[in-house]
Computed example of a mutant assay.
Amino acid sequence: MKTELRVAAYAVCVRDGEVLLARWVDRAGVKRWTLPGGGMDHGELPVQTVVREVEEETGYVAEPTALLGIDSIRRDWLRRLAGPGDWQGLRIIYEARITGGTLRNEDSGSTDLAAWHPLESVPSLTRVELVDIGLQLWRDRPPLGHSPLHDPANG
């Protein structure tokens, strides 16, 4: 079975009771809100990744201010020619503040829209689970940086 590891960095940017989100478009065209961020390039530091990705997806310059936590997910997948696989995503989640730039949408990337959303409206958004994980880490600040939302012991 083929294994694949993807390391990515994401930002939780909250100001004035709103959170900055990017709308991710999957391969099937399904659109869901996510935290701005994405895959780390070889040789890149995670803090560089999150700054680059926030700018690419939202137009903003972000300054990471705290490491909130690290989340890990696993999925089985089946590729037409490659056969079955075991995919793992390691997601490094930072708190960040916006220091410059102008809100804009990403051109020809994995997201198509960037917007601020009131924190109280997040539960009604069509979103990926990473939004909930990131906001919980931001609120709770667990000492080990682990979200119980992805704890296998919690079912």
Results as ranks from 00 to 15, higher is better:
residue 59 G to Y: 03
residue 113 L to F: 15
residue 24 W to G: 07
residue 53 E to P: 09
residue 148 P to L: 06
residue 119 L to P: 05
residue 84 P to V: 10
residue 122 V to H: 05
residue 63 E to Y: 12
residue 87 W to C: 11
residue 112 D to K: 02
residue 106 E to H: 05
residue 35 L to T: 00
residue 15 R to K: 14
residue 23 R to T: 00
residue 6 R to E: 15
residue 25 V to K: 08
residue 109 G to I: 07
residue 26 D to G: 04
residue 72 S to H: 13
residue 45 L to F: 14
residue 150 H to L: 15
residue 67 L to Y: 11
residue 119 L to S: 03
residue 45 L to H: 12
residue 117 H to R: 07
residue 87 W to F: 14
residue 145 G to H: 00
residue 135 L to R: 01
residue 63 E to G: 09
residue 96 A to Y: 02
residue 73 I to F: 11
residue 81 L to C: 11
residue 66 A to G: 07
residue 155 G to C: 12
residue 123 P to H: 13
residue 117 H to D: 05
residue 34 T to C: 11
residue 24 W to K: 11
residue 106 E to A: 13
residue 17 G to A: 03
residue 107 D to R: 14
residue 137 L to I: 09
residue 38 G to H: 00
residue 107 D to C: 13
residue 62 A to L: 12
residue 111 T to C: 12
residue 146 H to W: 12
residue 131 V to G: 07
residue 145 G to T: 01
residue 10 Y to E: 04
residue 93 I to A: 04
residue 142 P to W: 12
residue 17 G to H: 07
residue 113 L to T: 06
residue 58 T to R: 01
residue 98 I to A: 00
residue 141 R to E: 01
residue 61 V to H: 10
residue 119 L to N: 07
residue 56 E to V: 09
residue 125 L to I: 07
residue 9 A to L: 14
residue 46 P to L: 07
residue 87 W to Q: 14
residue 15 R to A: 13
residue 39 G to V: 14
residue 66 A to V: 08
residue 130 L to T: 03
residue 148 P to W: 08
residue 73 I to Q: 15
residue 60 Y to G: 00
residue 102 T to F: 05
residue 118 P to M: 10
residue 98 I to Y: 01
residue 45 L to M: 15
residue 109 G to S: 13
residue 134 G to V: 01
residue 116 W to G: 05
residue 107 D to L: 15
residue 71 D to W: 09
residue 28 A to I: 09
residue 24 W to Y: 14
residue 142 P to D: 09
residue 90 L to N: 13
residue 117 H to P: 03
residue 146 H to V: 15
residue 4 E to P: 09
residue 147 S to G: 06
residue 106 E to P: 04
residue 68 L to N: 03
residue 88 Q to I: 12
residue 141 R to H: 06
residue 3 T to F: 13
residue 23 R to D: 02
residue 9 A to H: 04
residue 41 D to K: 15
residue 55 E to V: 10
residue 16 D to M: 08
residue 90 L to I: 10
residue 101 G to L: 05
residue 151 D to P: 06
residue 99 T to K: 11
residue 107 D to A: 15
residue 148 P to A: 13
residue 115 A to I: 11
residue 116 W to I: 04
residue 116 W to Y: 02
residue 108 S to L: 14
residue 20 L to V: 05
residue 129 E to V: 06
residue 128 V to E: 07
residue 69 G to V: 02
residue 123 P to K: 06
residue 88 Q to G: 12
residue 142 P to L: 05
residue 57 E to Y: 01
residue 46 P to M: 02
residue 107 D to G: 11
residue 133 I to A: 07
residue 39 G to H: 12
residue 29 G to I: 04
residue 38 G to A: 08
residue 64 P to A: 11
residue 17 G to K: 02
residue 118 P to K: 10
residue 119 L to Q: 03
residue 27 R to Q: 13
residue 92 I to D: 07
residue 66 A to F: 04
